[in-house]
């Protein structure tokens, strides 16, 4: 599991990670499935895969069944380099407003970056909006943020992005 080097060495669990695909069309659907698992896994990531059709596959601690026609997607997920982490060490603690230093201390996130500007300062404030989805990059778990109203940073990914043809 070199892929999850930083997490598996520091994560609470050392369980094996396996790939699974249920053909979820969106990350929200995949997140929903992951978050409904009982018992909760210690690590779960989503992966955008193109084959056999564009969808969201999952890598997760524990073993789950994948339909034969989606097996290649499950395999792609477990060997994927850009996992988007849904559950990881400390993910449940990343709520409310935290400093960057606190995020790094209480979770498996190794770097907090500001989109287009490089690393955030330890003292910068992150308003987690109770939705934190860092991504693995070169084996490191990185949370990309953007500046937001009130002088805080917010995670790049928002829980409810504007849909394609929003009723705005």
């Amino acid at each position: 599991m070199t892929l999850y080097r930083s997490v598996s060495t520091s994560a609470v669990s050392t369980s094996a990670v396996s790939g699974v695909s249920l053909g979820h069309r969106t990350t929200a659907e995949a997140d929903h499935w992951i978050l409904s698992l009982d018992p909760a896994p210690s690590l779960a990531c989503t992966h955008l895969v193109q084959s056999p059709f564009p969808h969201v596959a999952i890598s997760v601690t524990g073993a789950f069944e994948t339909a034969p026609e989606l097996q290649e997607a499950a395999d792609a997920a477990v060997s994927g380099k850009f996992g988007r982490a849904v559950i990881f060490r400390g993910s449940a603690e990343l709520t409310g407003t935290l400093t960057v230093a606190e995020v790094l201390k209480i979770s498996a996130i190794e770097r907090v970056e500001i989109l287009g500007s490089g690393p955030a300062d330890d003292a910068d404030i992150v308003d987690t909006r109770d939705f934190v989805r860092p991504q693995f990059r070169s084996g490191d778990l990185v949370l990309t943020t953007t500046p937001a109203a009130g002088g805080v940073l917010v995670p790049f990914e928002t829980r409810e992005p504007t849909p394609c043809c929003a009723d705005h």
Binding site: R25, L48, V49, Q50, P54, V56, F156, T158, P161, T162
Partner: peptide, 8 residues
Amino acid sequence: YYDNNPSA
């Protein structure tokens, strides 16, 4: 309304 993230 540019607030999306990568999809499949």
